[in-house]
Every structure is written in C-alpha cells, then in structure tokens.
Design a protein around this nucleic acid. Structure first.
Length: 565
RNA sequence: GCGUCUGUAGCUCAAUCGGAUAGAGCAACGGCCUUCUAAGCCGUAGGUUGCAGGUUCAAUUCCUGCCAGGCGCACCA
C-alpha cells in the first residue's frame, strides 16, 4: 500500500495509542488497554483533515470530561512528526489533526505511480468468490427488473476484484421443469396458429409477442413438418428451440449491457450427473431429512427456518428446492470460499431456507451472502406499469438500453442502495438523458481530456510533465480548492475498500459525483494552462490525477470514460 | 396474522463503526460563455429525519411500541 495510507492508518493511530499508554503510565489515566481508535474525515471545513473521537470514548472509562482527556492526550503527543501541521481540540472533545500540504501532495505522486492500480488492494484473506445473479427463467427476454440485478452483480464482481479477490460470475439456468414444458407448448400452439388453425391458449401460457416470433422462425426453417405430428412427439423440439432462442437473446442483452458471465450453469446438468439425488442421499445419511405424509422433508427448522421444506413430493417429483440444494453443494464443492447470491426482494423468503440447507449440508452459512435488491417499480408518466411475462406485458432490458443507453441505465441502477425500491420512470429516463448524473461525471472526464488535448496543441510536453512529478514542483498547488480535490482523491482507496466490505457499489456513484463536482467548480474558477510554467505543470499533474481516479471508479461501475462529449 | 425491507427538503436519494452545523441532484427563482467543452459554474429558497418512548457525553443511525407503504409466507417454479 501507499506510504501515505500507512501514515494515516498506522502512524496517526499509533501516535494516539502511544499517547494513551503514556497517560496510563503517568497515572493520569486509570484504565488499562486502549479502545479501538477510529479516525474519520470531518464533514466540515476547519475541523481538520482527520479527527478522532478517542477522548469521547475514553471519557466514560476515565470518568473525566472529554475535553480534559483530550488535552492530556494532545500534550502526550509530543513526538514531533513533520507532516502534522497542528492539532486542535474542538467541540465536545474531538481531536482534530491538520496535516501539511506536502503530506497531501504525496497523493498525486501515488496516483501517477499506480495509475489503474490506484485503489486496488490486497485483502488479508484472499477469497475465491462466486457471484450468482440474474438467473431469470429463460422463458422470455430479460425485463428491466433483471437489469438491476445485472448491474449490481457485475459492479460487485468488479469491486471485489479490485480489492484483490478472485471472482467468478454465474447464471443459473432453469432449463427443465413445468415452465420449460409450458414454454414449448406455448410456441407449439402459436406455430399451429400460423397455419390458420384456431388455437386456445393454455391456462397460464406465455403470451408475449416473442413467442409468435419464435414460432415464425420455426415455420420459416421447418415449414409445415410439425403440423401432422402429434404434440407429444413435437414438444421436445419446440421446447428446445424456444429455450435456445431465448437464451441467445438473454446472452446478447447482457453482453450489450456489458456483462459476460463466466459460466451458464444448467439445472438439467445437476440431474444428468445425478447430483440432486446424491445431495438428498447425503442429507439422509446425515439425518437431516425425514419422510412424512409420503413426502421427503429437510429439517431446516433446526437451523432457523420457519418450517421444514419438502424436497421430494408425495408424487415422487423433486421440488425446485431440491435442485437448489444440489446446486449450492456443487458450488461449495468447486472450492469457492464465498458464495454471493443476488435475489430480488420477491425471493427474500428463501434466505433462511437456503442458509439452513447450506448448514444441513455441513457448510458454514456465513460463507454464503444473499444480497437482496428491492424491486424496480416501472412507471410510465408516473403511472405504474404492470408487468407479467406470461401475459406478455413487460418492458425489456433491451428496450431501455436502446432508449436510455447502457451507461445511463447502469448508473441509474447503481445510484441507489440495493435495499431500497427503485422507481424507474420510462418517460423520465428517456427525457432525463441530459440530466442524468452519469453525464455529469463523464463530462468531467471529457473536460479533463480536453485540457490535456489543448495543452498538447499549445506544445506542452504533457506526458513528460506527468511522468516526472515531484513534491517540490507540486508545491505550486496551494489553493484551497486544489487541496480539497487532493484530499478527496486520497480517500478513494478507502472508499473502495469500504464499499467492497459493505458490498455497496452505490457509494462509488456518490463519490464520483462529488469528485466531478469539485472538478467542474475548479475548472470554472481556475485555468490550468497559463503563462506560469511551474503552475501549469503542477496543475496538469493534478488534473490528470483526477482523470485517473474518475477512470478507475467508472471502470468498477462498468461505465465508459469518454474523451469527448 | 407472521416475517422482511423502506419511511430524511416539493420529487428521487446520500449521510464513514453512534459523532460536530443532516448533504447532493431534479424541479423553482436570480446571475455567469471573447479565455482549457455552458451536458458546466455561482447564488437564493427549501427539514420537528413517519410518530411516541428508551439507551448516553452524543441518535437519521442502536432498542421497544405504534403508523404507513413494498415484498414474501405451497407437497409452484
């Protein structure tokens, strides 16, 4: 890690720790040991670069006023460190640290030194992570709600990789079962209809236009050869053809959305390899399952589920849950340290039963994280659009991508915490193209590129300037705006770590907006390219550093960083 | 009824492990292009953080109860 981070993380904390023990050895403090020392970046100007609430938390133990504790601590901090400008006690007992400009300028050197690696880190425990997401049933094109899961899962994967984990992305395909049969029959009926037959659509059958589209393709390719055959012998073909077509669409939609899964895992594969039976047998030998009323149940209640769950129905059919158990066993057996599942809120009832199942299988449920994202409320002109795949009334991800654009759609989904529901107003999203915050961020990047272009046109050797920065020349950066930008830049690595820890990519969108805001403001008030050679060089280093951080952040979100707009 | 998520400015949302004066964008109003991209900048206005208690030096944050909304509670997938 950077020298600077070590300074902040270790030395400042260390100094405080030493101060505490010093006070204790002098008998000023009666307690023993040190509480956890937290450094935070104050929200307001004039409160220092870092602050600690150490004195506040010590107050209770020592039974002394926090400010008094603080002043003891500060006088114990006699060890003079060159990069501390001054220390103040403020408010109820905060200790505020003001650091020298030179300390901050070091950040710019780090950024230029690390480039795309700035913000990356190495975890204490590197994990092999499998993120399963989207996994929508392949019975129709992806709709917009899947877009949220897709954007979230992909950003999370990039984020976890940035902090040093090995991440694979997987899509679980439900390619067998009653839904598949229903899909095949829906297409089959539409096929007959194309030859002039009057058909009665099945109860609950898929009725979207796309079914007719698939039927037409079959008609084109196969003519009337299925017309005289009975349904039973035709169905396997219609089911497979429909499935293949839809999976092709889904892959294409996701690819165009910037997401390519490492693996598409078929449910049927589990059955072919007998893994479902093996998993159920395994539970039986572990006495985690039992027979009741002719069905086979897993005792999930002992691990916190509301009720026990059926895995084999009394008619002999295995439930979906049985496949899920086998699937998760399969995942763990492939050697992953951590499983992450991203579910829509309509599946939140599965959390306890899946965790219980994992535990019944003998794995630690803590190694499986189920992330719930609340649903997307689709609106059109403020009025809710009811979506049903079967009725064929839904808005596809593709439609939104074509109308709103990939970057804006991704950003829109990632801007909100995943556990709040999200209103997606189609008219607003289209109309708001120019107002979407993603453009604000991307525009900042484009502006920075423009500065570099102009500088080069004016014969500045920008590359040379950037490649050879040193603290001395950067000392020309003295404006409060410039230092504010640098402080924000220096927070980037910590932001990435905490976002990854919390699995909350939305924090990055807010960070990027703040950074873009500072840049736009700075751009308006200060010119980078001036007659002042030293100043221009220093500012070129600054703006290119901003550009690197914007690029790195946008990359994690899966967005482009355009050079021109 | 039980479980779960949410409730913060007119709207959509932030708020670092419980910290100082709760912040942005949009919408509204008033300014700024002869100078590196005006998809921008500056300013004004906007709040009893759903309600009521509790915990403590400190609560948007934690706890309890209530109110409102979303979602889920199958031998469906």
């Amino acid at each position: 890690m950077s020298i600077q981070e070590n300074l902040k993380e270790k030395t400042l904390v260390q100094l405080l720790k030493e101060a505490v023990s010093h006070c204790q050895s002098q008998g000023i403090f009666t307690g023993t040991g040190t509480p956890k020392i937290v450094l935070e970046v104050p929200k307001h100007d004039g409160q220092g670069d870092f602050a600690t609430t150490l004195a506040l938390s010590l107050a209770k133990i020592e039974k002394k006023p926090p400010r008094e504790i603080a002043s003891h601590l500060v006088s114990a901090l006699t060890d003079q460190v060159s990069w501390i400008e001054k220390i103040e006690i403020a408010g109820p007992g905060y200790i505020n640290f003001f650091l020298t400009n030179a300390y901050w300028l070091q950040t710019l050197l780090n950024i230029h030194d690390q480039q795309t690696h700035f913000g990356k880190s190495t975890p204490k425990n590197k994990e092999r992570v499998l993120i399963e997401f989207v996994s929508a049933n392949p019975t129709g094109p992806l709709h917009i709600a899947s877009g949220r899961a897709a954007a979230l899962g992909d950003a999370l994967a990039r984020l976890l990789e940035t902090v040093g984990h090995k991440v694979d992305c997987e899509y679980y395909l439900n390619d067998i079962g009653t839904q598949m049969t229903l899909l095949g029959r829906s297409t089959y009926l539409r096929y007959r209809e194309l030859f002039g037959e009057t058909v009665t659509l099945l109860e609950g059958s898929y009725q979207g236009e796309y079914i007719i589209e698939i039927a037409e393709t079959i008609k084109k390719q196969k003519g009337d050869q299925y017309l005289d055959r009975d349904e039973a012998s035709s169905l396997p073909f219609f089911t497979k053809f429909s499935f293949d077509t839809i999976v092709f669409w889904i892959k294409k939609d996701l690819h165009d959305f910037g997401i390519d899964f490492d693996r598409w895992f078929s449910e049927s594969e589990l059955h072919e390899k007998n893994e479902v039976d093996l998993a159920l047998d395994f539970l039986k030998t572990k006495t985690m399952s039992y027979q009741k009323n002719g069905a086979s149940w897993v005792n999930t209640t002992q691990f916190g589920d509301d009720k026990d769950r059926v895995v084999v129905r009394s008619n002999g059919q295995k439930t979906y849950f049985a496949s899920d158990i086998a699937y998760h066993k399969n995942k763990f057996d492939r050697g992953y340290d951590r499983l992450i599942n991203i579910f829509g809120a309509d599946h939140h009832g599965y959390i306890n039963r899946m965790k219980a199942a994992v535990q019944a299988l003998g794995y630690n449920p803590k190694n499986m994280t189920i992330l719930i994202h609340q649903l997307v409320n689709l609106l059109r002109d403020g009025k809710p659009v009811k979506m049903s795949k079967r009725a064929g009334t839904f808005v596809t991800l593709r439609e939104v991508l074509e109308e709103v654009g990939v970057d804006a759609t991704r950003f829109f989904f990632l801007m909100r915490r995943s556990d709040t529901s999200l209103d997606f107003d189609l008219e607003l999203a289209k109309k708001a193209t120019n107002e979407n915050p993603v453009f604000y961020v991307q525009y900042a990047h484009a502006r920075l590129c423009s500065i570099v272009r102009v500088a080069k046109e004016k014969a500045w050797d920008v590359d040379h300037v950037i490649q050879n920065p040193n603290l001395q020349s950067l000392a020309a950066l003295t404006l409060p705006e410039e230092l504010a930008i640098i402080r924000l830049l220096s927070q980037y690595p910590e932001l990435i770590k905490s976002s990854a820890e919390a699995m909350e990519p939305h924090r990055i969108t807010f960070y990027l907006q703040s950074l873009a805001g500072l840049l736009h403001s700075y751009y308006f008030s200060c010119r980078v390219i001036t007659e002042d050679v030293a100043l221009t060089k220093a500012r070129l280093v600054l703006v290119t550093a901003i550009r690197i951080v914007l690029q790195n952040g946008l990359h994690i979100l899966g967005l482009t960083a355009p050079e021109e707009m």
